[in-house]
Nucleic acid binder design. Structure first.
Lengths: 347, 347
DNA sequence: TTGAAAGCGGTACCAC
DNA sequence: GTGGTACCGCTTTCAA
């Protein structure tokens, strides 16, 4: 079907067209369309009807220019190849739509340079607010860039030095210590733990949990049990698996992108046999429950409550947009340790 | 606590500030900043220096209002819980950034109503173009909405009736027929195939491939071998598995979200034993290679070239933005069948 | 090569 | 309650 005949010029109707059609002034038409209460019922009806008939859409650029609001919110993440972010983006977009906010995506591809590039692009776009989960949170350049930002910011599982902003943080520390406790109760003494580098909050959390957990529970704290990883390539899973075997650990708490963990599990089975878990190694994985369900036997898993994370992010963000000078809030998200058959008593 | 004091306040500098600082007019400053060649070298340098010193950022809303370009591109998908879309969004955002385009996300949550809602929101936002992979492509309401769109559109693996637009289509049909051929060569006659409903292109592809493949290869075309699925919930994997067993198929070609396939595999092992593949059932899965690698034995898999898909989408989109009236193009993406130990001769 | 000025399409203040 | 109008910041003729 061709375009409606009401638009002979091929251009969108403007507020002027609507006002003329309804026999009112631009001002009144605008009041109606922005929901101002100071309009007569009659005028309101005529304007709405005209807008409908002309298929009128407000020009967002013009409105933005005038109101200094773009209705755009940025989401900076390393990338969707880490499967935590997909569901969060879904939930977030849905929740923000209720506030007439749209989500602009920026994937930094796990690089600090990418973080800065995206932040610059967000700034240039005039976003109203942003959610930031940069690839690294110990970059002074990034911290400086964020400090100079005018827009509200919510940090997601990142802590930047000298930056005090609304944050949603994941309590990986408690989860790992709880996991260590569970394994210790089964008699394990040498428990391997994977950790990102210290320039990423999850890495610092894992490191701290290993240090404190082994101390509290009187476990072996041999440094070779703390396995440093980048999470960049699934192939790294092989190195992790080999390191676990080499460490002579009897149990392990491993986290990372699902693809990496999958590779790690395959390698562990190659090295330790099909019945590796829990006969040769007790295993707790941190990640998507999908992974645990897929394995044989099903893995004991620490999972992240995606819905609660998305809700928290959306809530903090909207609150900050509405009250730019309100108090800074931090939401700590607890993880849950789900049962599985991949852990057992020390052989 | 209020926002930190180190956050700059006051108004952003405008072009007027830059012009004044550089001792030129707004017009000249604008020419410099938009890269017009008709500016003296001296003026150019002074303007750029002033802009730098003032930390000037062009106001996108004002520019949009003037140029009628928003620099925003929409991506409508059912949701990231289908793991195909994450990597595509990553790649797409990266490629579009090179053209100064930002990606706006819209997840319809696998509902036709969601599709329409997002399309409306995209329209209201004044996007310059959009990539559409709606939840269903046999909705007349959606087709009508797309017809009335003024913005360039690229369809991703969807065909809407009466709509002839740039498209990136996945050749699932060839891949499934190839898979059937591979299994037929191993002696299999009863091969189950999963398929989405007929109101989604991938479903129609699978259906057609089953019909034509069984005919060409003289395979059993018992309707109980064609397994209808929605893909909405991972738990559906159990139904699929049970249906495969009930069909007495000796081989199967199964596709869907990774979580669903994972559930299906678990159930099949429950029903057929740990050594189900390929002893009791030869299996080819369509999806993320991750799934195949994770399984024991590794699965034969049909995988999708995410990079090529994203490139094609970005190319078509940018070409369409630059040449709104150019010829409509369709890009057909071939899949590859990767070897795995989950297929074997008929027992 | 440059500057003056006319809008782009809304919003919101002010006077009636 | 309504209309007139200044103005948001930038781009782009048009003259000089």
């Amino acid at each position: 079907m061709p375009q409606p005949a009401d638009q002979p010029t091929g251009r969108w109707p403007t507020l002027i067209d609507v006002a003329r059609e309804a026999g009112v002034s631009r001002a009144t038409a605008s009041r109606v369309l922005t929901g101002s209460p100071r309009v007569s019922q009659a005028a309101r009806e005529r304007v709405l009807e005209s807008a409908e008939r002309l298929n009128y859409r407000v020009n967002i650029a013009a409105r933005s220019l005038r109101t200094d609001r773009t209705g755009l919110v940025g989401l900076l993440i390393p990338g969707f190849r880490n499967d935590l972010y997909g569901p969060i983006a879904d939930e977030l977009a849905a929740r923000l739509r209720g506030h007439d906010l749209s989500l602009v995506l920026g994937s930094s591809d796990w690089s600090a340079a990418g973080d800065l590039r995206i932040l610059e692009s967000f700034t240039a776009r005039g976003l109203e607010a942003m959610i930031l989960a940069p690839s690294i949170d110990r970059s002074t350049a990034l911290a400086a860039a964020i400090t100079h930002l005018r827009t509200p910011v919510v940090l997601f599982d990142r802590e930047l030095q000298g930056i005090h902003r609304d944050s949603v943080l994941i309590d990986g520390r408690s989860a790992i210590i709880e996991s260590l406790g569970r394994l210790a109760a089964l008699g394990h003494q040498r428990i391997a733990v994977t950790a990102y580098g210290p320039d990423l909050r999850p890495g610092r959390q894992a490191r701290g949990a290993f240090m404190d957990g082994t101390a509290e529970l009187a476990l072996d704290d041999d440094p070779s049990l703390l396995l440093r990883m980048t999470g960049l390539h699934p192939g790294e899973g092989i190195d992790i698996a080999d390191a676990i075997v080499a460490s002579r650990a009897t149990a392990a708490v491993i986290g990372g992108p699902t693809a990496l963990l999958a590779t790690c599990l395959r390698r562990l089975r190659e090295r330790l046999g099909r019945d590796a878990f829990p006969d040769r190694l007790s295993l707790i994985a941190i990640g998507d429950q999908l992974l645990g369900d897929l394995c044989d036997p099903p893995l004991a898993m620490v999972t992240r409550p995606v819905d609660r994370i998305a809700t928290a992010l959306a809530d903090l963000l909207v609150a900050r947009i509405l009250h730019p000078t309100g108090p800074v809030r931090t939401e700590l998200i607890q993880l849950s340790l789900n049962p599985g058959a991949s852990i057992g008593p020390l052989p």
